[in-house]
Amino acid sequence: MPGTSTTNPRLEYKTFQDIVPEMGTGMAAISHALRKSGIEPDLLEMLKIRISQLNGCAFCVQYHLNDARKLNVPAAKLDLLAAWREAGTYTAREAAAFDWAERVTLLANHYIDDESYTRVSAHFSEREIAFLTTAIGQINFWNRIAAPLRFTPPIPAGS
């Protein structure tokens, strides 16, 4: 029936990797650059979770929750990401990153004005903004692969 939703995977992550190994290689190179960027690993993981929430990508939300937990990101920060503006638990730097991430991710909904750039640049250097925007682009790309193909979320062991 048209419009009926299902959660059955259309293609598994491993199968996708086998079909398009070059994509994984390219993404690994970007991930390596991001690790060397100097941006806090916990911030990058929270950013990836928030963007994946916006894009409705269950695989990426779970994947990056798993990684964030390995980095010992406080549970309250993970639990409240969907409502980060009201939560009062994030630093000004984290809030600036989340705001920038939402604006870049939802680009089709609004123009990114100079005021938005000024807000993020109050907390990040030009170099960091370049890496931050790269991280945003990378997870958006992954979301656009994993969500439509419905990769099965990677549930952590013991869950």
Score class of each variant (00 low, 15 high):
Phe141Tyr: 11
Leu71Thr: 12
Val61Trp: 00
Ala83His: 11
Met46Thr: 09
Lys48Glu: 11
Glu86Trp: 08
Val120Met: 01
Trp84Phe: 10
Ala135Ile: 10
Leu132Arg: 02
Ala83Gln: 07
Thr133Asn: 10
Thr133Ala: 07
Asp79Lys: 07
Ala58Gln: 04
Val61Leu: 13
Thr89Phe: 15
Thr134Gln: 07
Asn55Met: 11
Cys60Ala: 02
Leu47Met: 14
Ala95Pro: 00
Gln62Cys: 10
Ile136Val: 14
Glu128His: 03
Glu45Trp: 04
Ile129Trp: 00
Asp79Glu: 14
Leu80Phe: 12
Thr133Pro: 04
Ile139His: 06
Ala95Ser: 14
Thr133Glu: 05
Phe59Arg: 11
Ala92His: 10
Arg127Leu: 10
Asn72Asp: 10
Ile129Met: 15
Ala76Lys: 09
Ala58Cys: 04
Cys57Pro: 07
Asp113Leu: 01
Ala95Ile: 09
Gln62Val: 10
Gln53Asp: 04
Leu65Phe: 11
Glu94Asn: 04
Ala135Phe: 05
Val61Glu: 13
Arg93Cys: 04
Arg69Ile: 12
Asp113Ala: 15
Pro74Ala: 15
Ala96Met: 05
Leu107Asn: 11
Ala82Thr: 04
Val73Gly: 01
Trp84Ala: 01
Tyr117Pro: 02
Leu47Pro: 03
Leu81Ile: 01
Asn66Lys: 13
Ala130Arg: 14
Ile51Ser: 01
Tyr63Thr: 08
Arg85Cys: 09
Asp42Glu: 13
Trp84Asn: 03
Val104Trp: 03
Thr134Lys: 01
Ile51Ala: 06
Asp99Pro: 01
Lys77Pro: 01
Arg93Gln: 15
Gly137Ala: 07
Ile39Val: 14
Leu34Val: 09
Phe141Leu: 15
